[in-house]
Write a protein that binds this DNA or RNA. Structure first.
Lengths: 335, 335
DNA sequence: CTGAAAGCGCTAACAG
DNA sequence: CTGTTAGCGCTTTCAG
């Protein structure tokens, strides 16, 4: 493992200068003569000098890396978010370090503490389905560690947040179902602990109310793990069938595709007339059969804005006092 | 930005020990008495001491991070690979740093040099469609920088490689088309520069030959950017239509879904009888319409094995002399 | 304008 | 078994 690189010392020695002069020349300090600068820069270029970022990090107490904590990388929505984050990070010279929780709060905690102790400069995260205890996250934040939340955000914590307009997105989709003549609209959704679950439920209720339809709790089915396990969904469907629903609104990517899979599994062929709408960021949603009306989140944009806020916070000289929550519009892709 | 942490010095001072003793105690060195160890460990636990990995990295000349260079994160295949990589990295205490090229060799080069200069301990990569010049990669490798290739690998370079059995996977799929009675089987594929393109073409030819069918070059269409731009595919289809093909084998995830999209775009409704098979790692391929027979790569496993090889190479005391190429079986998911 | 020296937090000879 | 010291590569006072 011996691929040696040049150091500032090497340059200094070669040019008969002191390391500090070389360092300053490389950083284009005002105290260095144009002449010296040129000599140093030319030589550095010639030997293809690369500053050692680890040494710099140690000195500056800053690693120029940001951590991402999500439930699952191999998920259309999250991978699009990462894409957005990466685009900003690249431009601003930050490294992106990834970790996933698979919806486990235990794993979430380990990942966060690991990323913190590995001196990432800040974190971008979305809560896992299981999470209830946020105290350790609050502690990190109160110690000044920058964390920006996106998608599934904690209400109790004051921080930058970037979310989709879940209420409106849901409203639009449910309205679409109603406009199609449906009346008994089921709602398949994720963990009650998550912010998005509440926001979407609200949009669902609003749409019903706006159209004078009654709200029926029996038509709401929660999947603790957001469809990570297909059985969750199958159980929910079995219960819904008894309720005689004529349409369904689904609150999550995995839940939506999982529901379609379950339909396809033949058991429910008689349900062909049920109209389906749901959140999904699949780019091939128009190929699906049964067809589905999709509520798509601006995932790339969400990652982008979250990363920008995080970097702004990291680079801010003063502790941020006013945190904002960015709300991005969703789009409805009709079947 | 002031979240101070305890250092070894703090512990030393508090316990009236020297920093080196504390360091050794924490690392469970044999030269430290059980008693001292206990005192140190207890105190460290109490104040929740976390070693500063940056300082350690500087000292050890090792960052415990590995870089990933892929064309696109938001792609089912690659995100599954990342998932596999992450699972190994987590277990072995490495951070995973991600970058994407969007098939640009320019971007690829920048990313690689960046990851190298940012002292990742090694790289996992798949070549971009555009790449022709590998000399700088060879230079890095010859300087002892560990790089493991997966999926799209360079033939000229001797290194660990992990690939799918593209030849066999293609053979099986084409055989399936032939068994369905098809005779004029088109082949839609990616850049000629990529290893996978050649391997799959070979499998295609073999299947034809094994069944006594003629090979017709007019039925082969290359898409330089692997379907990154939909127009590539539409042009190819327009040409294929003239050839009167009755089935098609598609060599890539984006190409496969892109082809289906193009079909859906109505222009080709008369082609409904054309049977489709192709590489894709979509987890919802069974929901697609038109239907497609999928060749699926063991993406997670590929990432896992590549990461294991890389870490083995990183941690090896000696320069590796014998590089192996791991070939993993694909699976055929019939429509 | 340039150099000497200290220090970021950690580890590892070397001495005792 | 423990402490002293030097040093990883870089930046940054402080002196000149």
């Amino acid at each position: 493992m011996a691929y040696e690189n040049y150091t500032i010392k090497d340059i200094a020695k070669a040019l008969n200068l002191s390391p500090s002069t070389v360092s300053r020349a490389l950083r284009d300090s005002y105290e260095i003569s144009a002449e010296t600068k040129q000599i140093v820069l030319e030589y550095a270029e010639k030997i293809n000098y690369r500053a050692n970022p680890i040494a710099r990090s140690l000195k500056e107490r800053k690693s120029n890396s940001i951590g991402i904590v999500i439930s699952e990388i191999a998920n259309t929505f999250f991978s699009q978010v990462i894409d957005g984050i990466e685009s900003v990070a690249q431009e601003k010279n930050y490294q992106v370090v990834i970790s996933q929780t698979n919806e486990s709060s235990e794993r979430e905690r380990l990942n966060i503490e690991y990323l913190y102790s590995r001196s990432t400069d800040g974190l971008l995260m979305t809560l896992s389905s299981e999470t209830t205890d946020l105290s350790y996250i609050e502690r990190l934040i109160s110690r000044g560690f920058p964390i920006v939340f996106f998608d599934r955000v904690p209400n109790q914590i004051d921080a930058f947040k970037v979310i989709a307009d879940n209420k409106q997105g849901t409203f639009d989709a449910v309205q679409y179902l109603i406009d199609s003549g449906k009346r008994r609209i089921a709602h398949l959704t994720g963990s009650q602990r998550l912010s998005i679950t509440g926001e979407r439920l609200e949009g669902y209720k609003n749409a019903l109310a706006a159209n004078g339809l009654p709200f029926n709790p029996d038509l709401i089915k929660y999947c603790e793990y957001g469809g990570l396990h297909l059985e969750e969904i199958e159980i929910a469907i079995a219960e819904l069938v008894k309720e005689n629903y004529d349409a369904i609104f689904i609150s999550g990517d995995k839940l939506s595709t999982g529901y379609l899979q379950a339909m396809k599994n033949n058991a429910y062929l008689e349900l062909n007339t049920i109209k389906i709408a749901g959140f999904t960021n699949s780019k091939v949603v128009n190929l699906f059969s049964p067809t589905i009306t999709a509520v798509s989140q601006p995932a790339f944009e969400m990652g982008k804005q979250a990363a920008e806020l995080l970097i702004r916070q990291i680079e801010s000289k003063y502790a941020i006092e006013e945190f904002e929550t960015v709300v991005l519009p969703t789009s409805l892709i009709k079947e």
